[in-house]
Amino acid sequence: MSEFFTAAALVTTIGAGIRYATSYLYAAIGETFGQRSGVLNLGVDGIMLLGAFSAYYVALKTGDLWLALLMAAVVGLFMGLAMAFASVTLQAEQGISGIGFYLFGLGMSDLLFQKLVGTPLPISGFPEVHIPWLSDLPVVGELLFSHSLLVYGAFLLVPIGTYVLNHTTIGLKIRSAGENPAAVDTLGVSVARVRYGTVMFGSMLAGIGGAALTTELGIFQQNLTAGQGFIAVALVYFGAWRPVGVMYGALLYGLVTSIVSQLKTLEIIPRSVSDLASMLPALITILALVIAVQRERQPAALTKPYERGG
């Protein structure tokens, strides 16, 4: 056990947890915006996969990581447009259409990968950016201030998202569309426009989350996200629809995953229960979710399509 508590092991474990949390955080913050406006987007994982593939492909062909990131964001936006068309304009059942979008993203990203790339080839990711002075601090410097730009970007989204949701007119419109869309409508604000906006913004972040994953790993392959998008949806509930809560959820999930992995490597968790231990991050998230949901109330109009005069 003492091996686990060495500074090097702790720094790596926590650092790995933070990196692991990054792609979840992008997707979950995006999903928070959608859900606060009343739209549940279950297609996040599929959108992440398409974002990941497009970023991977552009990075592989051009070597330009910023172009790759832009492409993932654009693909995310278009997927968001389609999702919003289904759930807002056509008023489709959000759970079902979301699963449809997930399956589409899963199949399409793999098909494109097989046809356009085939054999997995590595790409190089965003370099680590050491923040001057801060990154020289012992332990904390390496933990918090020696990551790639995408990691900082994800955590910056938390205060920005909180501010936008709570202190701006747009935020007020979003929250109201999710709580009482009829009231918003009577004030002359288009509920549909607000929801299109949040779903597209959220999907764009999901695409960027996929790009963060593929550039961090330096590879793409079938089902690269392995269900991360679904965890992201759960994290929104866990975080009680608040960006800060969502960030705690993402960090908890990331840290438990890397701690379990570290304990397995050091054989503190014996090999015989290794597979059971792999379930721990999901189990802890479910437990926390149950407790959190007891405490908080979801947006009143979540998953309910809004029909004028309906």
Binding site: A9, Y20, L217, A226, Q262, T265
Partner: peptide, 16 residues
């Protein structure tokens, strides 16, 4: 299939 988890495992082994 979980590529990210394999990366995390590699990181912990290097730390060890």
């Amino acid at each position: 299939s979980d590529v990210a988890l394999a990366a995390t495992a590699a990181n912990t082994e290097i730390a060890a």
